[in-house]
Each structure stands twice: as structure tokens, then as C-alpha cells.
Design a protein around this nucleic acid. Structure first.
Lengths: 108, 108
DNA sequence: TGAATAGGCAACTAATAAGTTGCATATTAC
DNA sequence: GTAATATGCAACTTATTAGTTGCCTATTCA
């Protein structure tokens, strides 16, 4: 399995927002996902295609609509196989820890 | 703190490779990092600038050379604050678990 | 059946990112 | 001091990505 597509899929804020939306409520249709994302339906479709190519989203056709679900497995795998490599990395550059820790929070 | 730059920085395989290289051996100069990456020195410089902007790499000038260090903190924070949100996500789309699990491995 | 709804496909444009080349500056070594 | 080394800066080209528009197909509902 190649994590490259997963990283690239996660690089876009719109796609991260779509993942958040599907995490909160699975089974959303394309139309539902378009609400709340100020862009054309086709743009959202493209983002969803990229997410599906990375296996982060799976979809099933039901009648005339398509239901989308989050698949958290690739994120898990990145956490386990890739991030784990850095968790025991030596923290040589302590100078920037200050800056890193004293800056507030975010959502995305 | 905005994770956006971190995600974007991680999206490129060359930059992930640079992080790996710095994880294995910190304090490498630009020239050292160029060996093993078949591209011009300026290209590597740009990648390093992006990594520094994301605070994933810190560098210090020493004499005529610049030493680079990995900073694992932003990766930690993504693991804690962002990936954690998906670790308890419902695994609704079980259909693709099969596909996800029966595909071999990778390094990057 | 016919209108409305949900989505798919393809071509196009615009913005961004990756990479190159050429030249300039600063430091070390002889 | 001069040459070699290490890096910085800026302009440019090319590739990729994000987003749009227009039109088409399939399904539902009256």
C-alpha cells in the first residue's frame, strides 16, 4: 500500500473538511456534501474522487444518489507506520519548542 | 497553530524523504541532503524552505554551511489532535476493509 | 409519460507548485 | 589575497491541481 495518495489527499483543506463532515455523519449524498462547501458540485466530486482513490472514502450507489462513508483505516495506518517513526525521533532543535508550544490551537 | 502547512509539506514524497534523512542523521548540510536526491540544489532548498515554513525542520547557519534538524513536534501534534479524531470514527464501510487489509506493504 | 432531481463526463481556464538556470555573496583553505 | 566551497536570490519554464461551465444520463415522483 502506498501512502502517497493518502498524504496528497489530506493536503487540501476542502478534503479534510469533507472527511470531517463524513466523520460526523456517514452516508451523506453528494448533494448534502455540497452544502456547506461553497463550490460547484463538480469540484466536490473531484475532491471525493481523490479521497476515494486514497481509500479514505468509500461510496455506494443507491438509486439515483450516491452515499459516502469515511474509511478511517488509511489514517490509522499512517499513524501506525509513518508517524510512529518520528515519535521517538531525537528532539535536537529545542529552540523552536517554545514557539511551537506557545501558539494557540486550531481545528483543521 | 495551523496544521495546513504541515499537511501540505507532507504531501510531497521528496519532502518526506528529506524528513526521513534528517531523522536518521540530524545536522546535515544542504549539500549532504542533495546527495541522494536527484535534483538541483535549488530544488532541495525550496523543499527545505517549505519544511521550515511548516516548522518540521529547523536550521542554523554555521560558518558557510547550514545545518538542518528535524523537528518532530508538528507531526506529534497532528497525530494527537487530528488523527485522534478519526481513531474512534465508526468503521461503517466494512466492505473495503478486505481490500485494505489484503494489500501488501510499503515504506513511504 | 413527463417534469424534477441526483449525479456523471468532458473540455476548458486559472492558480499553484516543482524544477531549472544563471548569477551573486559569504566563508574557508592554501 | 585568491581559489574553492557552500549557500542565497531571482527569473523563468513546465507540470499539476483546483475550479468552472455545459451538456448528458439515470432515477424518482406526480
Amino acid at each position: 500500500m502506498d501512502s502517497g495518495p493518502v498524504f496528497r489527499a489530506l493536503a487540501d483543506p476542502v478534503r479534510r473538511s469533507l472527511l470531517d463532515s463524513l466523520r460526523e455523519r456517514g452516508g451523506q449524498t453528494l448533494g448534502e456534501l455540497c452544502l456547506g462547501h461553497a463550490m460547484s458540485r463538480q469540484a466536490v466530486t473531484k475532491h471525493l474522487n481523490i479521497l476515494e482513490a486514497a481509500n479514505l472514502v468509500v461510496s455506494e450507489r443507491r438509486g439515483r444518489e450516491r452515499l459516502h462513508h469515511l474509511n478511517p483505516v488509511p489514517i490509522q495506518e499512517i499513524a501506525d507506520r509513518w508517524i510512529g517513526r518520528f515519535q521517538r525521533a531525537p528532539l535536537r532543535a529545542l529552540a523552536d519548542l517554545k514557539q511551537t508550544l506557545e501558539t494557540p490551537d486550531e481545528q483543521n
